[in-house]
Design a protein around this nucleic acid. Structure first.
Lengths: 195, 195
DNA sequence: TGTACATCAGTGAACGCGCGTTCACTGATGTAC
DNA sequence: TGTACATCAGTGAACGCGCGTTCACTGATGTAC
């Protein structure tokens, strides 16, 4: 059995990681298989040793990114999971609606980068998107000390405000207006956690 | 001079209208020139009598849609422009975050449908996008009876909440969750106009 | 320990399809007389 | 009024490029003896 057992898996992981970054930045159609493979240090032809099609790769890359993001959030929040607090919600909002996140094209939250692609993607991809949103909403909800119906509504709105604010800020050509949108959304979101 | 003077212009307008609907629903890459021309009752070859390239058509279609939407809003609001009111803002929010708007794939607001395409499009297209957002924000701002700095912040956040809520609702595969997001955003947006 | 062998990850050339674009042609229309 | 003509919007076949996918081959690696 040539090549160690995990060698192929490592290569596969490298391909997914390259794809993740490229898809997140450029979307599905503008990324070619050659770009992905070169960025992983390989050549075009080998791709089909690892994936059945470009679509399958997309599904895996997006799903893994979405899941990874969700896990990271849960870990961040889980430092003391027995004591969810408004501080935690405000901390999440602060980092989500930060100038740094706005400038981070490679690492940005996929809820921001991918909605229009996801809407046309395979069901598994859509499910992952939904799961990540639910994770976000769940964390907000935990951070709000309210009766559950109101907390749920606020948590959903916070998610919409965070994602919408970032999408708009990223799309606007004027960076001063983009920054204004980001700052306004941040302020309003913080206010919502305080009512 | 064969064909009446405006004949060509009418055909051109028909092409733009077909393109508008198709691009709004499917995005730039998934719409072919043949689809646009057939939907306008013409054949592929004639396209280049009217437009220099697919990109130019996209620019015109999107810009005209964005401008038209802005004009419509101003007209709606302008019924009595001397008396902007919270009612007007609430009315806009109600119709924007309505179930009908969520289901209207052809007529939906382009701020919802187009952000990821616009981010990669020509500068004119991006400017049109920004203008439409500014029109929306301006109308919200007029409808809020506050000192200007706070009204501006709230207006920007309302825009982010409206657009973000609709984008999320449209992307989620579970229509019950989508509806929940829409309803929550609607409620929170209304509350914001009342504080 | 060293050598022959089998496996299969990776290579790069080639294929083929879709679609944007071009082009020679057609035929409907308005004008000139 | 009717006829020949010029124009040019519209047609549809053909071109060519890019990219997803396939395929015959290579060469690095682990195993058998």
């Amino acid at each position: 059995m040539p090549y160690s057992a995990e060698h192929k898996q490592q290569t596969r992981a490298k391909i997914i990681e390259s794809a993740r970054v490229l898809f997140n930045r450029h979307g599905f159609d503008d990324v070619t298989i050659e770009m992905v493979m070169n960025s992983a240090g390989l050549t075009r032809g080998g791709f089909y040793n690892h994936f059945k099609s470009k679509e399958k790769l997309y599904g895996e890359a997006v799903s893994s990114f979405l899941m990874g993001r969700g896990a990271k959030w849960r870990a961040d929040a889980g430092v003391d999971p027995s004591r969810p607090s408004p501080q935690m919600a405000r901390h999440m909002i602060k980092s989500y609606l930060s100038t740094e996140h706005l400038g981070d094209l490679d690492g940005q939250c996929p809820l921001i980068a991918l909605p229009s692609d996801v809407a046309r993607a395979a069901p598994e991809v859509q499910s992952s998107y939904q799961e990540l949103l639910e994770a976000m909403v769940g964390l907000f909800e935990q951070g709000l000390e309210k009766n559950s119906a109101e907390a749920r509504q606020k948590a959903l709105s916070l998610a919409a405000l965070c994602v919408g604010g970032m999408i708009l800020a990223r799309t606007l050509p004027s960076s001063s207006l983009a920054e204004e949108v980001r700052a306004a959304a941040h302020l309003t979101a913080t206010e919502i956690t305080q009512h």
